[in-house]
Design a protein around this nucleic acid. Structure first.
Lengths: 217, 217
DNA sequence: CAAGGTATCAATTGATCGCTTGAATAACCA
DNA sequence: TGGTTATTCAAGCGATCAATTGATACCTTG
């Protein structure tokens, strides 16, 4: 019963996709693409890598079936291949945060002191009562590529000088790219330093979108 | 805003887990562990690898937080670290089957011609009518480690000489380790060659168990 | 058609990975 | 205690991978 050879081929094929998740650079690219499609040099500068290296990693991701690309004039825009890929990335990130002390430590180091958070259910309830103002603190292009319905866009860079756009009588909830993105943490700290009551949404736009796709309105 | 260094540490930490999914051997070990806990040399012989090599891969999986181990007398028994890890493996397998032609080809090669399958919902309905007989064709130890409630165990090796244990008036549904396990396919082909009406359950025991954990009875 | 920007290719280097071999350790048993 | 089995450790070799560099291909604009 040495039927092991064709079985090896199967696992080798699956490992083609697994290998794509083995490099920190590629994970960062996937994380960026979770916000929406991007060109090669947008991704290169966002991740601080050379164009050539970024292109190479993107091709690896493409070979693994994780991303799609299409030409757009001079540029090539890459996107995640589908919501199953996004879900896979979120599951890996979540599992690593649960199981690896290294990840928890790195996250604390990167995000700084924990700030008060709010869950999706509570946010939905508060929004129904028109009780909070929801702020998307990601860069404007990402907001335009997709955002939570009733949110207003104030990129984290501009938050300090646009404080007066926020009504003073309601709590502020900030969200950004996800639980490992520092923007919402920074926003909450900034707002609290100004004496406002602010919390961060525990999840980011990709998680929100995915949850709403699964249970369509 | 060169906040990229601590962020790199985060992605590097997550990649520690990603790397664990980059080797076909380790994927095979994960797949075996999805059936239940196993000792090192059970895993070594099941995967056709040397003990030392298997032990090394298991330690890599342990360092990545994907498996737990405990001594049991002379042996060390490894298990998956939790259902989130199982879900992650199933998601990777599913995504790779969707996105990689390589995987589809290897699966066809390994499983042989497609045999008629049945989904979970239909099976549940038929079982409620006591209309089918459900057979677990995995090795007996795996059946004992956990199985679908009303199933009877007939390992694929013994199926041919135990055909008379199956009532002749009902359809047979066979299941095994999962959609990429050949046992159920083989069982259905064997039974059809004997003139019985048989189908395979589209999923295996781990998928069934996980689905029932999520929506507890 | 030439110029300029964007993306990819090709070749190289150093680092890491995967597997083997042989020795060491741990638990059990007589 | 000494023997046996299961697992792990340590060293080594070949193969693969990640990043750099410089050159090439592709598309648009003038």
């Amino acid at each position: 019963m040495d039927s092991t050879r064709p079985k090896d081929a199967l696992f080798e094929a699956i490992a083609l996709m697994g290998k794509a998740f083995a490099s920190p650079r590629r994970l960062e690219l996937i994380d960026l693409l979770a916000q929406g499609s991007r060109s090669v040099d947008e991704l290169a500068s966002a991740s601080g890598q050379s164009n050539a290296n970024t292109s190479q990693h993107l091709q690896a991701l493409h070979a693994a079936g994780l991303v799609t690309r299409r030409r757009d004039g001079l540029r090539v825009r890459y996107s995640l291949a589908g919501d199953d890929v996004l879900a896979l990335w979120l599951a890996l990130r979540e599992a690593s945060a649960t199981r690896l002390a290294e990840v928890q430590r790195a996250a604390r180091e990167y995000l700084g002191d924990e700030v008060e958070a709010i869950g999706r259910d509570e946010l939905v309830a508060r929004m129904a009562r028109d009780d909070v103002v929801l702020v998307d603190v990601r860069p404007a292009e990402e907001f335009e590529a997709g955002h939570i319905e009733s949110a207003q866009s104030i990129p984290i860079d501009e938050l300090k000088r646009r404080l007066d756009e926020l009504p003073g009588d309601r709590e502020v909830v900030a969200y950004c790219r996800g639980p490992f993105c520092a923007f919402a943490h920074d926003a909450v700290r900034t707002l609290r330093a100004e004496g406002r009551y602010a919390r961060r949404l525990h999840e980011g736009w990709p998680e929100w979108r995915l949850a709403n796709e699964e249970t369509p309105a």
